[in-house]
Simulated assay, not measured.
Amino acid sequence: MTKKSETKTLSEPESRALLRQYEIPCVSDSLVEGPDAAVAAAREFGYPVVLKLSGAGLAHKSERGLVRLGIGDEESVSRACTDLLSAARPEDHANGVLVSPMVEGSREFIAGCYRDSSFGACVMFGLGGVLTEALADISFRLAPLDHYDAMGMMSELAAARLLDETRGEPAVDRKMLAYILEQLGVLICEREEVVSVDINPIRIVDGKPLALDALVEVRP
């Protein structure tokens, strides 16, 4: 396993850009430098929106209160943007504020890939959001993986029923979700500089998986 001191994290826009290169669906976003641009981006997306401080040193934004959810008007967007920029620390390497549309959905999963010191390149999938650490409902495969492997990862979850039609919501598009897992396997095998990718959450929107937050760790 590569030591933390020998790696760096990409900013969230950079992380999403890498995922998009591998056709992994991500929420739309706009990186802005100030309140006026944030308001313009929010107007373009439509309310409500999410604002986050962006920077290569920001691995855990929520713990520091650097994520603002469900902002519904221009005045609140302007104020939130100003507050987030003011909260930046030198070690955050902040490069602006990320504006995204607020995406609703009750089911969340986690997916990622990493390099294990014993097994090499691996892909993981499990129950995501705030329940990830509490329930530890996760499956693993060696990379690269095929469609059969990816489908098997889903069926292994104790909470696999969440992938089915539930509480009036449509069943998850398992083929699309499997494709995301397959592409993560391709990514970790092709990109030697990538140490790990963490997508949490993948939110299910009208049955389709959508990456909302991503963290990529690379060798400098």
Rank of each mutant, 00 (worst) to 15 (best):
S196H: 01
C122I: 07
Y114P: 03
R174Q: 08
S11I: 11
S139V: 10
E44K: 01
A88S: 13
L145F: 01
R174S: 07
S155Y: 03
L98F: 08
K208I: 06
V172K: 07
Q183W: 04
A40Q: 05
A42S: 11
I202C: 03
A121V: 04
L69M: 15
I71Y: 00
F140S: 06
G112P: 14
V99Q: 12
D29T: 04
D73I: 12
L163W: 11
P25T: 09
G120F: 04
A37I: 12
R191D: 00
Y179H: 07
K208R: 13
R64L: 15
L184W: 03
M176Y: 00
P170Q: 09
A121H: 00
G57C: 06
F140A: 01
R79Q: 10
P25I: 13
A214H: 07
R167L: 13
G72P: 11
E133D: 15
E6G: 11
C113S: 10
A80T: 09
E33D: 11
L215K: 06
S5H: 05
P35L: 13
I204H: 00
L181H: 04
E165C: 13
G168N: 11
L58K: 01
T2M: 15
S5T: 11
D137V: 13
V218H: 05
A42F: 02
L19G: 00
H60N: 12
S155T: 13
S11A: 12
F140Y: 12
E165S: 13
A158S: 11
L181K: 06
T7Y: 00
A121N: 13
A40S: 12
D213F: 03
S11V: 08
L187D: 00
A59I: 09
E104I: 13
V99M: 13
A136V: 13
L127H: 01
T82Y: 01
N200H: 07
G168P: 14
D149E: 14
R64P: 08
R16P: 03
K4Q: 02
E74V: 15
M124N: 06
G207I: 05
M154R: 15
P101E: 15
V205A: 02
S78M: 10
G207N: 10
V130N: 09
G55C: 07
D92T: 02
C26G: 03
P13E: 02
P220N: 09
A59C: 05
L10R: 04
L135A: 11
S62Q: 08
I180C: 07
A211S: 10
E133M: 13
G128R: 04
I110Q: 07
S139R: 07
D36I: 14
M154H: 05
K8Q: 06
V67M: 12
F125R: 07
D198Q: 08
S78W: 05
I138V: 15
F125W: 09
L184D: 00
M154P: 04
R16Q: 05
A41Q: 11
R20Y: 00
R107T: 14
K8Y: 00
A80G: 06
I199G: 01
E44R: 01
L177S: 00
A160H: 12
G65T: 08
A214K: 01
S78K: 14
A37W: 03
S76C: 05
S76N: 10
E75C: 10
E217Y: 03
K4V: 14
E182K: 05
S11P: 12
V99R: 09
L163E: 15
T2S: 08
G65P: 01
P48W: 08
D213R: 00
D213P: 11
